[in-house]
Every structure is written in structure tokens, then in C-alpha cells.
């Protein structure tokens, strides 16, 4: 058994573009849920609009990639506004249901054969993200690799994750500046008790809307990175469980903490890939009786996602505040 391969793979996943996308989705959720208490379980809808906004603008309308990025972000903002106007007055559970239903509706519509002309429908859509890779400063020959062992990236991948993690850093800094201000204090007061905030003259609807738009746009950025990374978008990549993964990352790291969503996303992908690699090695090295090995063979991905489920349950039971969260704060929730 070669643990350097396992850890290399895990590290590559932990710092790869998937982790960037998950981190952005989770930061958005942190603004929604962590600070404002909005239980958005349709975050994947924002990612979808970011990704499809970018892809369709370039692939179908022939606009430049940068215009596409702007369109993707605008679409996720528009979704936040459209979703928020009728729903922000609802209670937590009702709001949650509407968000997941709305995200599913968009996915069904975009992925239908009727939409082939616009979005590619079930065929998915692809475009040329050359404008992004033209800026790549890393030499990207067929043999250029960066990293050690299995922890290595091509020049293009390295460029995507450089930009991606820079974006994560910028967004995190922005969120920190916002929530440290009196504005952030109002958000937290809404999370704690919106009637108290109203009784002190805060326009709760307006603040919730601002939070929904900001968190949604951050999720949209994740979608844009996803589109650029894969040079396209596929409706199957935006199923409801993407949102649940983002919540796992957020809760793993710690809700309503500055670095929680980022650490959580890194850890999420590290653990998932570690488990998958580990199982693959076990199967390859024939440590196990054939029957068991056969059972695991090809099911590594399925098992690692099952572990996400286990992680969610254990987290809620054992450490609901996450890695960097504050235990006392969490206990005050038990009302």
C-alpha cells in the first residue's frame, strides 16, 4: 500500500478546482444560513445559473467569455431577487422547500430537449474558454507538470486553481469586512430573532434580500469557475445533492465562522478522495478476499459519498459547531 499516492490524490482534490467551487458555494451558504439564518437548500440553482449563463452566452450567442461571466453572475443575482421577493417572509422550512423546488425546476427546464437550441438540453453545452487560458502564465506543454507525486497539476489546471483560490480569498475577505460591520450585526440579529430586529427599526426584508443576493452571487461565481474549468455545463452536474455537499462543507468547517466554509470544502474533498484512493488501493493490492474486493471494486465513489452522509450525521451529533465553531454559541441554539 502506497500512502504517498493516497495522500497525493487527496491533496490534489483538496486544492483542486472542485474544492474551489465547493468553497464558493459554501461561502455563499454561510452568508445565507450562517449569518442571516436563511435555510437555502437550493444553492445549486445559483451555481447552475452562473455556469449556464457563462456557457450559453459564449456557446449560443457567441459573446466573449468575459461578457459570459458577467451574464452568469447577473443571472444568479436575478434568481436571488426573483426567489426572494415572494419567499423571504416565509418561515424557515417553507423557505427551504421553495428554494430546492425552484432550483430543480430550473434544472429540468434547462436540461430538457425543448431547450436544446438554447442550452444544449440533455446534451450539455460546451464552449471555448480560450480567453481565460490565454492569460495562463504557467508553461503548459504536454509534459509540464507542477507538484510532487500524485499531487500534481497541469499548467492549465494550476492556472484555474490559482485564479480560483485568489477569488476565494477575495470573497472571504469581503465577507469578513461585511459581517464585522454594523451591517453584519443586523444580519446576525435577524438570524437570532427577526422580530427583535424589526422592533428596532431594521428593514428585515431588505437585509435578507441583500444577504440572499450576495450569497447567491458568490454561489454563481462557483458556477462560473465550474463552467470555465470544464469549458461547458451539464444539467446532471447540478442535482440537489450539490447543495447538500456545500452544507456538509459549511458545517464541517463551522457555520458563521470566517474560514469555516473554506476549510470545510478543502477537508470535504480531501476526505472523499482519500477514502476513494484508499479503497482503490485495497482492491488493487488484493488484501481482501475476492468476494469483498469485488464488492468494493468500482464502488469507491459510491462509498465515499456514503461517507459524506455519515459525516453529516456524526457532525450534527458530536460537533454541531464544526471545526472552528464555538461550542457555547451552538448550545445557545438549543431552544
Amino acid at each position: 500500500m502506497d500512502f504517498s499516492i493516497i495522500f497525493g490524490n487527496a491533496a490534489r482534490a483538496a486544492f483542486g478546482p472542485e474544492a474551489v467551487i465547493l468553497a464558493l458555494a459554501a461561502i455563499g451558504l454561510n452568508v445565507h444560513f450562517g449569518y442571516t439564518g436563511l435555510l437555502n437548500i437550493g444553492q445549486v440553482g445559483f451555481l447552475l445559473l452562473g455556469a449556464y449563463g457563462t456557457s450559453v452566452s459564449v456557446a449560443t450567442f457567441g459573446w466573449s467569455l468575459w461578457a459570459g461571466v458577467v451574464v452568469g453572475l447577473l443571472l444568479s443575482v436575478a434568481f436571488a431577487v426573483a426567489l426572494g421577493i415572494p419567499t423571504l417572509r416565509l418561515n424557515t422550512v417553507m423557505f427551504a422547500m421553495v428554494t430546492i423546488a425552484a432550483a430543480e425546476i430550473i434544472r429540468i427546464l434547462i436540461g430538457s430537449t425543448d431547450a436544446i437550441g438554447l442550452t444544449g438540453g440533455p446534451l450539455s453545452v460546451s464552449f471555448d474558454a480560450g480567453a481565460f487560458y490565454d492569460l495562463n502564465p504557467y508553461p503548459d506543454g504536454p509534459h509540464d507538470r507542477y507538484g510532487i507525486g500524485t499531487f500534481e497539476f497541469t499548467g492549465q489546471q494550476l492556472w484555474v486553481i490559482t485564479v480560483g483560490w485568489l477569488l476565494v480569498a477575495l470573497v472571504t475577505a469581503g465577507v469578513v469586512m461585511l459581517v464585522r460591520s454594523p451591517w453584519g450585526r443586523v444580519l446576525k440579529s435577524i438570524r437570532e430573532d427577526q422580530d427583535a430586529a424589526r422592533s428596532l427599526g431594521k428593514n428585515v426584508f431588505s437585509y435578507k434580500m441583500q444577504a440572499l443576493v450576495i450569497g447567491g452571487a458568490i454561489g454563481g461565481m462557483g458556477g462560473v469557475i465550474d463552467a470555465i474549468k470544464t469549458s461547458g455545463a451539464d444539467p446532471n452536474g447540478f442535482r440537489p445533492q450539490v447543495t447538500f455537499f456545500a452544507y456538509t462543507a459549511l458545517l464541517l468547517g463551522g457555520s458563521a465562522t470566517y474560514l469555516g466554509p473554506v476549510l470545510g470544502a478543502v477537508l470535504f474533498w480531501f476526505l472523499r478522495e482519500w477514502i476513494e484512493s484508499f479503497l482503490r488501493q485495497i482492491v488493487e493490492e488484493a488484501w481482501l478476499p475476492d468476494v469483498v474486493a469485488e464488492f468494493f471494486d468500482g464502488a469507491e465513489g459510491v462509498i465515499s459519498v456514503a461517507m459524506v452522509g455519515v459525516a453529516l450525521i456524526l457532525l450534527m451529533l458530536l460537533r454541531p459547531q464544526g471545526i472552528v465553531g464555538n461550542r457555547t454559541e451552538m448550545q445557545l441554539d438549543a431552544r
Binding site: S181, P182, W183, S189, D193, G201, K202, A256, D333
Partner: peptide, 24 residues
């Protein structure tokens, strides 16, 4: 309706009217 996860001073500060820092 005390805001359980805010500090006492933040609770009171929240009350202040016309705060410039509450604008996005």
C-alpha cells in the same frame, strides 16, 4: 427577544438608530 449569540454590547448597539455602517 435577546439575541442569544450576540454579545451584550452588540445587542445594545443594534438599537442605535440611523447607523451609517448598516448600509451595505
Amino acid at each position: 427577544k435577546s439575541l442569544a449569540k450576540l454579545t451584550v454590547i452588540d445587542n445594545v448597539l443594534l438599537g442605535a438608530p440611523r447607523q451609517r455602517g448598516e448600509k451595505l
